[in-house]
């Protein structure tokens, strides 16, 4: 029989008890780990064999309840799904186990997830439709219509994307990737009757999709490989398609790219900022503009470079545009 590979590894484990501690500390454990063990096996081993006071959430052990999400060396993982040997390959033989958000820890890995649920509830995570209780015929959704939802209904609410999102950390209002996925799950559902209202919620600057920094941390963090940012882009598209978009700096910025490409092929950076901010708003960028001008970083309008074969670009923009603003 083939021998099972084993490694002796060092684990630094986050410890904190909100009832007792002022600051967290880390306990170190050296454990023998075999190739098929997952992070949850390590947490169990520590709790059952070394320190019974270690607290963490876990339930299904099948990657579907979403309760055992933590971070290992800053990588969001589902403990029951992540093989320890795979982590060793990325980070080496010392692994740091921490809760999803250290600032929100109650006890060890158990965090206060209320901010996640608050945002989740803000997008009305349920179908809104007048249901005929005595239908005369079936209410059929075609496969093509169902496919529009993509995989958005596979979210297990583990919170990995939410606590990996840098905007959630920087902007308390921000709804965040998980709830956007849920919003899209219903805006893409042909049965839902609240599409516009839903889009109004996610269109707001501050909480809405316009504050996404496009870092793809959510896509990387999702254990179900849902790519939340793809749904965020779909929401952006729907905001335009449904005529919900308001003329604000973020919307004009997105639209401004088309105008600029039509005119020059490549961007007219200065004009894009002016178009987005407006003639008055653009003035607040004056200090940066002066600094850039001094360093030869601003091309004057009469020297604006243009793409070759610009007539092709103009033609394509005319024939291939699918949305208006």
């Amino acid at each position: 029989m083939e021998e099972i590979a084993k490694k002796r590894l060092k684990f630094k484990v986050f410890r904190f008890n909100a009832e007792r501690d002022y600051l967290p500390h880390y306990d170190e454990f050296e454990l023998e780990v075999s190739q098929d063990e997952v992070v949850l096996d390590i947490l169990n081993k520590i709790k059952w064999e070394h320190d019974g006071s270690l607290s963490y959430r876990r339930s299904c052990r099948h990657g579907i309840c979403g309760s055992c999400a933590i971070k290992v060396n800053n990588k969001p993982v589902l403990s029951c799904k992540e093989r320890v040997f795979d982590l060793v390959e990325i980070f080496g033989e010392e692994l740091v186990l921490e809760p999803q958000d250290k600032k929100r820890a109650y006890k060890d890995f158990v965090i206060n997830k209320s901010n996640f649920w608050e945002k989740y509830n803000s997008v009305k995570p349920y179908l809104i439709a007048q249901v005929d209780e005595h239908p005369k015929s079936e209410n059929i959704v075609s496969p093509e219509e169902a496919e529009k939802i993509e995989d958005a209904d596979y979210c297990i609410q583990c919170g990995n994307c939410f606590y990996a999102c840098p905007v959630v950390e920087a902007n308390e209002e921000y709804i965040g990737p998980a709830a956007f996925v849920k919003a899209y799950r219903f805006t893409a559902d042909v049965r839902d009757e609240d599409k516009k209202e839903r889009l109004e919620i996610v269109d707001k600057i501050g909480p809405g999709v316009w504050d996404c920094v496009k870092c793809f941390e959510c896509a990387e963090a999702c254990p179900k490989e849902l790519s939340p940012i793809t749904k965020i882009t779909h929401l952006h598209n729907q905001i335009f398609e449904e005529g919900v978009a308001k003329s604000n700096v973020a919307v004009r910025h997105a639209v401004g790219f088309k105008h600029s490409i039509k005119k020059h092929g490549i961007l007219d950076e200065g004009e894009l900022v002016r178009y987005s901010e407006g003639n008055f708003g653009v003035l607040k960028h004056l200090p940066e503009a002066i600094a850039m001008f001094k360093k030869g970083k601003i091309v004057p309008p009469w020297k604006m470079p243009k793409s070759k074969n610009l007539d092709e670009v103009k033609k394509l923009i005319k024939s291939s545009s699918t949305t208006k603003f």
Partner: peptide, 26 residues
């Protein structure tokens, strides 16, 4: 590649996904 245009910078993609595909493919 002097013929190339802007890639849309992930912003044109928010406005018009298909147009951005055509321009990038070009």
């Amino acid at each position: 590649l002097d013929e190339a245009t802007c890639c849309g910078a992930s912003h044109l993609q928010d406005f018009d996904d298909f147009l951005s595909l055509v321009l990038n493919a070009r």
